[in-house]
């Protein structure tokens, strides 16, 4: 499911049949993958912290469609969707969640700490906000090397209150670094709503004092995300510096698997789910345009379920890491000249 878009001349708010079906498929893969992860967690096969991306699929799917080969992605611990969007193997991701040797980090990283250098996915970071200066450093490296690649740093509304985010904003703007900051505002930082944690709740304005342009985006609409993403990525790629996109989105599940979610009403979740679901929304458009029939979409769902089932099976069959792995990868060997 490579999501690199090659053509840039398409009209911004409209997408072709192929694109729409692709976004549908990509979002559905994330949704089904996360549902399965939740299930495996419930069975005790996945342990520790496990943060699901269900509800936010349009953000990463829309953004990824704006990127090209060599662009880098970095995010926090709610990272499974980003990895799938980067075309990382569902099997390898799921096996990392179960802590097995077939996982992307050989089982040594877990849900929050996974990487794929090959796919330019730079993690997977468990410290809220840490990925923002690191992502800025990826952009710094692009500029240093004179490439036209862009780094995309995702972080949450809660992370937007960390000091290091503003240290990074300042340097990125000062040095015109090619970074797109994507704030995934899902309205809560664990149990604290944006209104309770942010003095300025319009987070896209957080760049104003650094002269970074920001924009609010409907993060439940993959085409709206894509449109905003293309503008932001083009801006950063052209050497003008960083750009902030605040994606208004929502997570359906608890913060992590052990969150009883008592800080919000069930009706709030149900309302968004039934009126703003990104996958249902796109499905409606696909049907309306006659790009596919209900049955064809069901077939896609079946295919995706099969992929996810394979991933889950693999993640349970893959052996635990060999005990010798305890000692590996602490330091790299020094090449002796």
């Amino acid at each position: 499911m490579a999501t690199k878009s090659k053509s840039t001349k398409k009209a911004p708010s409209k997408a072709s049949k192929a694109e729409m079906l692709k976004y549908y498929r990509d979002m559905l893969l994330i949704r089904r993958f996360e549902e399965k992860a939740g299930q495996l967690y419930g069975m005790g096969k996945i342990a520790g912290f496990c943060h699901l991306y269900i509800g936010q699929e349009a953000v990463v799917t829309g953004m990824q469609s704006c990127l090209k080969e060599g662009d880098q992605i970095i995010t926090g611990y709610r990272d499974h969707g980003h990895m799938l969007a980067c075309d990382m193997e569902p099997k390898g991701v799921m096996a990392e969640l179960t802590g097995r040797s077939g996982g992307y980090s050989k089982g040594k990283g877990g849900s929050m700490h996974m990487f794929s250098k090959e796919k330019n996915f730079y993690g997977g970071h468990g410290i809220v906000g840490a990925q923002v200066p690191i992502g800025t450093g990826l952009g710094f490296a692009n500029k240093y090397r004179g490439t036209d690649n862009v780094a995309v740093a995702y972080f949450g509304d809660g992370a937007a209150n960390q000091g290091q985010v503003y240290e990074a904003f300042n340097m990125a703007s000062l040095w015109d670094l090619p970074v797109v900051y994507v704030i995934e505002n899902n309205m809560y930082a664990m149990g604290t709503s944006v209104a309770r944690h942010a003095s300025e709740t319009e987070l896209f304005k957080r760049g104003i004092s650094f002269e970074i342009e920001g924009e609010e985006v409907d993060g439940m609409d993959v085409l709206a995300v894509r449109e905003a993403g293309e503008k932001a990525v083009k801006y950063a790629r052209s050497g003008k510096g960083p750009y902030i996109l605040e994606m208004k989105t929502y997570r359906y599940r608890g913060h992590s698997m052990s969150d009883p979610a008592k800080y919000r009403k069930r009706e709030e979740v149900d309302d968004i789910r039934s009126h703003h679901d990104p996958i249902e929304g796109l499905k409606g458009q696909i049907l309306e345009h006659g790009h596919a029939t209900e049955d064809e979409l069901k077939d896609i769902d079946k295919e995706i379920k099969a992929i996810v089932k394979d991933a889950a099976d693999f993640s349970l069959e893959s052996p635990e890491p060999d005990p010798s792995e305890l000692w590996t990868d602490v330091l790299k060997d020094v090449e002796v000249a």
């Binding site: 880098q72 970095i74 730079y122 840490a130 923002v132 200066p133 690191i134 992502g135 800025t136 450093g137 990826l138 952009g139 710094f140 490296a141 692009n142 240093y144 090397r145 780094a151 000091g163 290091q164 503003y166 240290e167 990074a168 300042n170 340097m171 000062l174």
Partner: peptide, 21 residues
């Protein structure tokens, strides 16, 4: 020359190093 921003430039350096600088 960086601004006075230790947490930020240390993290930025880490990102640059991840990218191979």
């Amino acid at each position: 020359d960086t601004p006075i921003t230790e947490h930020g430039f240390a993290g930025l350096g880490v990102g640059a190093a991840f990218a191979g600088l």
